[in-house]
Design a protein around this nucleic acid. Structure first.
Length: 493
RNA sequence: CGGGGCGUGGCGCAGCCUGGUAGCGCACUUGCUUGGGGUGCAAGUGGUCGCUGGUUCAAAUCCAGUCGCCCCGACCA
């Protein structure tokens, strides 16, 4: 197994790939740009799904499913939308293959006879097909709001891919809603952003900056885009979730209208919001270390691993029996635990293996522990050791898992605070962006050309205009024009 | 699409400069051993060196082409 390099090193990308593959979260597949999510990685995604689903249901949403294929003409209807996605669409042109002679060999080629009358786009996102359906479902104001979520795969033909962070095909959820008023839609978009922020902090132990995107960065076809922005350990930002107020842009082109109480006809107001398997990558980059993955207990597929330890001459049977009993009691208490009783591997090997996999808590049980009627608990993030009386094990383990969850969030929050820094001159901006990086709080004139020039010159983008950023008079860090607030700049993934 | 790097057993690599018919570590198999931080010993299995063509008595090695991958950018969740 290759030795991991430190997360801070220049070769952060290599460290990231090593952790993802060695912790068996995912592998590159024979299909370029597409990954295989392995059971460990998928279990992590499933835990995220469960927690998110619960939060969506609590806010009144229902799950549904729409087609993978979208008629090309649907995509074309909303001008900004098509411009944003046209360059990265996979498209289906034929419905069957046939054998044919190519360069003297028999090969499979698309059967020209089967060319589709209208080509089908593999969904890069589902606004168009979903709002086309909403239009059929809605006649009256009584039919609103519609609050739908879809768990699905989407395809975006990106130029460069990276496990979890950007793959050609990825898994996500996309929420789509229709409302009678602008106000309701706006509240919905903001509500779901809050849901994402809560999920990131409480489950992923990743603190985020909430805010609104600039026009340049907003979703293609949206009135306004909100996002949560997280900071990775190499001090680059990652957009971890988005929520859009789509206004009436899609309602107009798909004729999504309703009759009001007063009898007149109005276009509905839409929102859409999503998070993807990218969050798994965020978890790796936000918490991982030299020993591999570090998973927050609330999302870890295995929260506790029990490693029995013995020497020749010890009462192996008694140790194993105690380990099994401990395992059963933890399972009975609803704690996802795993007993590693493999006899051909040394304890040290197991320690390293489970640490690489990110298991938040390890319980060692050997002769010395048995003597003291305890197990030795070791927390994954800092390897902090303590004795756990066997009698009180489930309760103590639960407490320790909560501690780990809290400590991980606290540590990530400290990192975020330390890496968020006000800058007032362009020189300082460029210097600090290179090292140490992080979020640079700088004034900006509000003009897109200036924003684009800064990106061109420094590779920093405006991540968002944070909600909690106080008003403050100042001068644009690049052009010097008046500004009334600082915005979050960073290099981003 | 630009810049850099790399393709040699399942994984990580050496060998290439200076051609002579493939080697190391890990993993895997078998047996014993060991066990509180990647146990140790022994015996094994597995590769036409990315592909195509050229030079040569002889190519992993030299030449040309081609395909693929990784990293850094542009694009993006």
């Amino acid at each position: 197994m290759a030795k991991l390099v430190t997360p801070r090193a220049e070769d952060y990308g290599r460290w990231y790939t090593d952790v993802v593959t060695q912790a068996r979260l995912a592998d590159y597949s024979p299909v370029k740009g597409c990954m295989v999510i392995r059971p460990h990685g998928y279990a992590l995604w499933e835990n995220m799904q469960k927690a998110l689903d619960r939060m969506f249901k609590e806010t009144g949403h229902e799950n549904a499913y729409f087609p993978l294929f979208i008629p090309k003409s649907f995509l074309a209807r909303e001008a900004e939308h098509v411009e944003g996605f046209a360059k990265e669409c996979a498209i289906v042109t034929h419905s069957r293959l046939k054998a044919a002679e190519v360069d003297g060999r028999t090969a499979l080629v698309p059967d020209p006879e089967s060319a589709l009358e209208e080509e089908l786009v593999v969904r890069p996102t589902s606004e168009t097909i979903i709002y086309a359906m909403f239009a059929r479902w809605v006649q009256s104001y009584r039919d609103l709001p519609i609050l739908i979520n879809q768990w699905a795969n989407v395809v975006r033909w990106e130029m460069r891919t990276r496990l979890f962070l950007r793959t050609t095909e990825f898994l996500w959820q996309e929420g789509h809603t229709a409302h009678a008023t602008y106000q309701e839609a706006e509240e919905e978009a903001r509500r779901m952003l809050e849901v994402y922020a809560t999920f990131a902090e409480q489950h992923m132990a990743i603190p985020v900056v909430k805010g609104v995107k600039t026009d340049k960065e907003k979703f293609a076809g949206a009135l306004r885009t909100y996002s949560i922005e997280a900071l990775m350990q190499d001090n680059r930002a990652l957009q971890a979730g988005t929520s859009h107020n789509l206004g009436q842009n899609f309602a107009r082109v798909f004729d999504l209208k309703y009759q009001t109480e007063g009898g007149s006809w109005e276009y509905a107001w839409n929102t859409s919001w999503g998070v993807s398997t990218r969050l798994v990558g965020a978890l790796v980059m936000a918490h991982g270390d030299d020993n591999g993955l570090v998973l927050p207990p609330r999302l870890a597929p295995i929260q506790v691993v029990i490693v029995p330890i013995w020497k020749a001459g010890d009462a192996v049977d008694r140790i194993l029996a105690a380990a099994r009993e401990l395992h059963e009691r933890l399972a009975a208490a609803g704690l996802p635990a795993r007993l590693d009783d493999r006899s051909n591997l040394s304890p040290g090997f197991k320690f390293n293996e489970w640490e690489l996999a990110g298991v938040p808590l390890r319980l060692e049980i050997g002769p010395r522990d048995l003597q003291a009627n305890q197990a030795t608990a070791v927390k994954r993030p800092d390897r902090g050791k303590s004795g756990v009386p066997l009698d009180a094990a489930p309760e103590r383990v639960r407490q320790m898992l909560e501690e780990v969850q809290r400590e991980m969030l606290a540590r990530a929050r400290r990192r975020l605070e330390q890496a968020t820094f006000p800058v007032d001159s362009y020189d300082e901006f460029r210097e600090r962006l290179e090292s140490p990086g992080g979020f640079l709080l700088a004034h900006w004139c509000g003009q897109t050309p200036c924003e684009a020039a800064i990106q061109e010159e420094t590779r920093a983008t405006i991540r968002c205009l944070a909600f909690d950023q106080p008003a403050e008079r100042g001068a644009c860090v690049r052009c010097g024009s008046a500004s009334d607030r600082r915005v979050h700049f960073a290099k981003a993934y």
